[in-house]
Amino acid sequence: MEQEFYLGLAQRVRAIAERADPFTRRRLLDLAKRYDAKGSPTARSGAAERPLPVPRTTPPISTFTGPGEA
């Protein structure tokens, strides 16, 4: 479903680019290429996803929380 969304956006952006001036057309076509890349089945292989952050380690809880008797 997400693929169809991005491919639809690429198609709409190309339609707008047909009526635009050369500078804007070039930028819109570049945008359409990016949408095509996001919508392609190979783009969903996980390469675009960020890795999970490394879990934080906390120091071990001391069994002695305050001054105690020896």
Rank of each mutant, 00 (worst) to 15 (best):
P59G: 01
P67R: 05
S45L: 14
R12T: 02
R12E: 15
F5S: 04
G39F: 08
G39R: 09
T63L: 08
A20M: 08
Y6G: 00
A48Q: 10
L31H: 03
G39K: 05
D36S: 02
A32R: 08
G66Y: 06
Y35V: 00
V13K: 03
A43F: 15
Q11F: 04
S40Q: 09
M1N: 09
Y6C: 04
R14F: 03
I16A: 13
A47Y: 14
R27Y: 07
G68C: 01
R26T: 04
P60F: 04
A32L: 08
G8N: 15
G8F: 10
P55Q: 02
P55Y: 02
I16F: 07
T63E: 12
L28H: 01
P51D: 12
R44C: 06
A48S: 11
R25Y: 03
G46R: 07
A48N: 13
M1E: 13
P53G: 07
R25A: 15
L7T: 01
E69H: 04
S40N: 12
A43P: 02
E49D: 15
V54R: 12
A32M: 06
G39Q: 06
E2Y: 07
V54A: 10
E18R: 13
A15M: 11
A43V: 02
R12P: 00
T24D: 09
R19F: 08
Y35S: 04
T58D: 12
G8A: 14
R27D: 10
P55C: 00
S45E: 13
E18L: 13
P55N: 01
A15W: 03
G68Q: 05
E18K: 13
A10L: 04
R25E: 13
A48I: 02
K38W: 14
V54K: 13
R50Y: 09
A10Y: 09
T65N: 08
P53R: 12
L29K: 07
A32F: 09
L29V: 08
A47D: 10
V13Y: 05
R34Y: 10
G66E: 12
I16Q: 13
R12F: 06
L29F: 05
R44P: 02
I61T: 14
A47E: 14
L29C: 05
A32D: 04
P51H: 07
L52M: 11
P41R: 12
P51E: 14
A15P: 00
